[in-house]
Simulated assay, not measured.
Amino acid sequence: KVIFEDETMLNNTKYTQPSIFLISAIILNILGLEYTLEKSPSIVAGHSLGEWTATLAGGALTFDDALDLIFYRAKFMDAAAPKGFGGMTALIGPPKLENKYSFYNMVKETLEEENKEVYIANFNAYNQIVISGKLKDLEDIEEVFRKKRVRRIIRLNVSGPFHTPFMKEAADNLRDIMEKRDFKDAFIPIVSNVDASLTAFEMDIKNKLYKQIFSPVNWVKVVEKIKEMGINLLFEIGPKNVLKNLVKKIAPEIEVINIERVKDLEKIGPIIEKINKGE
């Protein structure tokens, strides 16, 4: 129904999350069936919901358990954000910054000064930050940033104030369900959204997935960690190529191959062959 009858339902996180995960998991499965890497990837990572796909890819969860938990994650997050309660806004700063963190620091200081219930939700790139909070407070803060001449202010088409303390109850409810599911140690380390640490132990993985629901996604730190490890090739699996563009802004020397559709797998063969040959 979501796909064929009413696509607007995808704006509701209750339907968005399982749909995106399913697409990513299907592509990941086909990739594993079609191609064999002689050496496991160094890391896996994902942005927000994508960290669950990374957890699946890292071997810490089965597909059935991951999909089941994402269903509950979406359900609890939707319940924590009644219609009209909150939202999210992207702030786009200038292409050239005084220093890497100048735009982030300005946004952080402004939110602290205004003392509204609005928080940094995503640190996506040095000049791209998403803020999240109560709708009225968000509107007031947007006006403050207009006066500060922030280059672009874009209200996002989402159904709630995600990655904020407003999601703590949803996270607590999900943790109760997670305790009943069979997590394993990951055979590929996962770079955490919360603090960019490498996570492989079962308890750590569960704890980071719990915390990321009400914590900011620090994608800049994730990419900086990947760069620090000397990794120079990433495969982005799932709809659109948002992460490819973000990585380019943070660490342009890292190559990102986007696999959005099954037909995109055709370009993977020669690359996998080179990797297996050690080239």
Rank of each mutant, 00 (worst) to 15 (best):
L61E: 02
A54M: 10
E202D: 10
L156T: 13
D137E: 05
E7A: 15
N193H: 07
S102K: 05
F166K: 09
D204H: 06
V217H: 07
I154A: 10
K134I: 13
A79E: 12
K249I: 05
T164C: 02
N173D: 12
V107A: 02
N193E: 07
A121G: 05
P82I: 02
F4Q: 13
E38G: 15
K240F: 01
S19W: 06
I254W: 03
K1V: 13
F166L: 14
A251S: 15
L37S: 01
K184P: 06
L233G: 00
V256W: 03
M178D: 09
E117D: 14
G133C: 07
K263Y: 10
V158W: 08
L28T: 07
S197D: 12
I141R: 05
E202Q: 14
Q17Y: 13
A57E: 03
I20K: 02
L49D: 12
Y15W: 13
K136V: 14
S192N: 03
T16L: 15
I213D: 06
K240R: 10
F21Y: 04
N232A: 06
I141A: 10
E228V: 01
E236N: 01
Y35P: 05
Y210G: 12
I92R: 08
K267A: 05
R149W: 03
L49F: 11
Y35S: 00
N157P: 08
H47P: 06
V191W: 01
E179H: 13
M167R: 03
V158F: 08
K249H: 09
L198S: 09
M9R: 12
P165G: 05
K1E: 15
K14Q: 15
I70C: 08
I275D: 00
L49S: 08
K208N: 11
F76P: 09
G278N: 07
I213Y: 00
K100H: 13
S159G: 15
G93L: 02
P239L: 13
L135G: 11
Y101F: 12
G58P: 01
G86N: 02
L37P: 07
L209I: 14
T36S: 13
A200V: 03
S102V: 10
K168G: 02
V262L: 15
A171N: 01
K244H: 09
M229Y: 04
V220I: 13
E38W: 13
Q128P: 05
G58D: 00
L209T: 08
S197W: 09
I268V: 14
